[in-house]
Design a protein around this nucleic acid. Structure first.
Lengths: 258, 258
DNA sequence: CATATTTGAACTGTATACATAAATTCTGCT
DNA sequence: AGCAGAATTTATGTATACAGTTCAAATATG
C-alpha cells in the first residue's frame, strides 16, 4: 500500500508526521494501538529512518506514548487531559496577551488580529441569517495563531504552538465540524465579543484585564466541551467525531489481523 | 520526551543528548556554532543515527536552532529570552499549584514537598552560620520537580518539565555555582519563606493565593537575575559562569581549527 | 485444566552505504 | 585585484543491513 508518493516530497519525515497524526486523530489508530516502526514505514512506502523521526516527534507532541522498551502506542486521552489542555491554553494565551499589553504588541500582528475579528464578524453574519461555520473555524484558528505571536516572545510562542497541537486544546478543536458547532452556535457570538474585548484591553495596555479575558475565553471552550459531554453521555469518548478518544481497542498496524 | 528515566548508558542517543547539552551549556560550543551530525558523531564515537536523534531533541528543547537547510547551530540567548523563560515557569508553576489547591494535591508529593522544605531549612542553617550551597541547590531543584507533579495533571507536568530544561529558567539555574549564590544569599531565605507560604496556601485549598505566590516566587528569580546583570554589565552574556550565553564565536566541531 | 517454560518471530537500536543538495574553494576572466 | 562561476568537498536525508532484546505463542508439565 504505497500511498501516493508524489505528495509533499520535501521531507519524508514531515510527510510521515502528517500522515500518522491524521490517522491517529481520525481515530483510525485507536488508543493503545501499537504502532511499529517497520509496519508504519512499510505502510507509507518509506524506510524506517524517517518513520522513526516521525514517531519521535509524535511522542513529543503527546499523541503517542513510549513504553519502556521503546515501543510506541497511541495515547488514550481522558476527559481530564482535555480539560487540562484547555486550561493550559488559557494560561499561555493569557500570559502572552498580558505581556503584549505591557510591552506593547507587535504592530503587524495586532492589525492582523483586528482584521480577522472583522472577518469573523462577517462570517457570523450581522443579522444571524446563516453562519458560515467552515469559514468561521478557519478564521478563528488564524486569529489565535496570530494572537500568540503578539507578545514578540519566541519562547512563549513556541509553547503556545505546542499546546495548540494537543488534540482538543486547539482553539478550534471541536469547532471543526458543523456537527459540533451547531449546538454551541450562540457561544460563538460570546467568543467573538471576547475577542474584541481582548484586543481592546491590549490596545489600552491593560495587561491584567487582557489576561483575565483570555482565561475567560478558554473557560468558554471548556463550558462548551462540558455541555457536549453532558448531552452525549458524560464521556469524551462518546462525542461523535472525536473518535480518537474512543476506547475501542484497535488492530495492529501490521496485517496480522485477529 | 522521555529523556529522563534511569536509562543510564543503555541508549546511545540519550548519552549523546547529555554530552552535547553539557558541552553547549558549559559554553564549549558557543552561540552560532555549527554542530554537524558527522562531526558530532565522530567526536562521540557513535554513528550518525543516534546523533541525529540527539540533535533533533536539542532543537526541540530550544538549545539548538535549525537552519532552513537542516543544519544545527547553537542558539544564542538574549536577556529577554531568559526573562520570558522565567515568566513562563512562574505561570506554569502557578497554574499547577492553583489546580493542586482546587482539586486537592496528591498526598505523597505534598508530603515530600513538606519534607524537602524542612531539609532546605536545615541546609540554610538556623542561625545563618554557613549555608551549604550545593545541598541547597539540589534540594531546591527537587522541591520544584516535586511541586510540578502536585496537580496530578500529566499535561501540565510535561510542560513544566520542558520549561525547566530551558537554560536559566530552571528553578536553580544560576543557583548552581556558589559564585552566583553568594551575592543573592539573603534572597534564599525569602524564597524559602515563599515555599512555606505556597504549601500553606495549597493545604488551605486557596488556589488563587497559591498561584499568586508562585508567580511572586518566579519574580524573585528574575530580580536576582536583574541584580546580577546590573552588577556585571547589563548583559547576560557577561555574567561569569553563564558562558553559554557568551557572544564569542566558536570554532567548528570539526577538527579543522584555524 | 491451569501454569510454567521454551522457542521463535518481531521489533527496536545502531551502524553503514548511497544519493542529493549545499557550501566552500579554486580558477579563470574582466 | 576583484568578482563570477564551476568543481570539489562536505553535510544532510534516506535506505538497508545487522545485532540484541522483547514479546507472544506454543508446548510441556504439575
Amino acid at each position: 500500500m504505497a500511498t501516493y508518493a508524489g505528495a509533499g516530497k520535501k521531507l519524508q519525515s514531515e510527510r510521515a508526521v502528517r500522515v500518522l497524526r491524521s490517522r491517529i486523530l481520525s481515530g483510525e489508530f485507536g488508543p493503545d494501538t501499537h504502532i511499529s516502526e517497520t509496519a508504519a514505514a512499510e505502510m507509507m512506502g518509506i524506510s524506517r529512518t524517517p518513520t522513526r523521526e516521525a514517531l519521535a516527534q509524535l511522542v513529543d507532541e503527546g499523541l503517542l506514548d513510549r513504553t519502556s522498551s521503546g515501543r510506541c502506542t497511541v495515547r488514550s486521552f481522558s476527559a481530564d487531559d482535555v480539560i487540562d489542555a484547555i486550561e493550559l491554553r488559557g494560561v499561555l494565551e493569557g500570559t502572552i496577551v498580558r505581556l503584549a499589553a505591557e510591552r506593547g504588541p507587535s504592530r503587524d500582528d495586532f492589525d492582523r488580529c483586528m482584521e480577522l475579528a472583522d472577518l469573523i464578524d462577517i462570517a457570523l453574519g450581522d443579522a444571524e441569517p446563516e453562519i458560515d461555520f467552515e469559514r468561521y473555524a478557519d478564521l478563528n484558528a488564524e486569529f489565535h495563531r496570530t494572537l500568540i505571536g503578539l507578545s514578540g516572545s519566541v519562547t512563549l510562542r513556541r509553547e503556545a504552538e505546542r499546546a495548540y497541537r494537543m488534540p482538543l486544546a486547539s482553539p478550534s478543536a471541536f469547532l471543526q465540524s458543523q456537527e459540533h458547532l451547531v449546538p454551541v452556535r450562540r457561544s460563538l457570538y460570546v467568543a467573538q465579543a471576547q475577542h474584541r474585548a481582548l484586543l481592546d484591553a491590549i490596545a489600552a495596555r491593560e495587561g491584567a484585564r487582557a489576561e483575565m479575558l483570555a482565561r475567560e475565553h478558554a473557560r468558554l471552550a471548556r463550558q462548551n466541551l462540558d455541555a457536549l459531554m453532558q448531552s452525549e453521555d458524560r464521556h469524551v469518548h462518546d462525542i461523535p467525531g472525536l473518535s480518537m478518544l474512543a476506547g475501542t481497542p484497535q488492530v495492529n498496524t501490521k496485517g496480522r489481523t485477529q
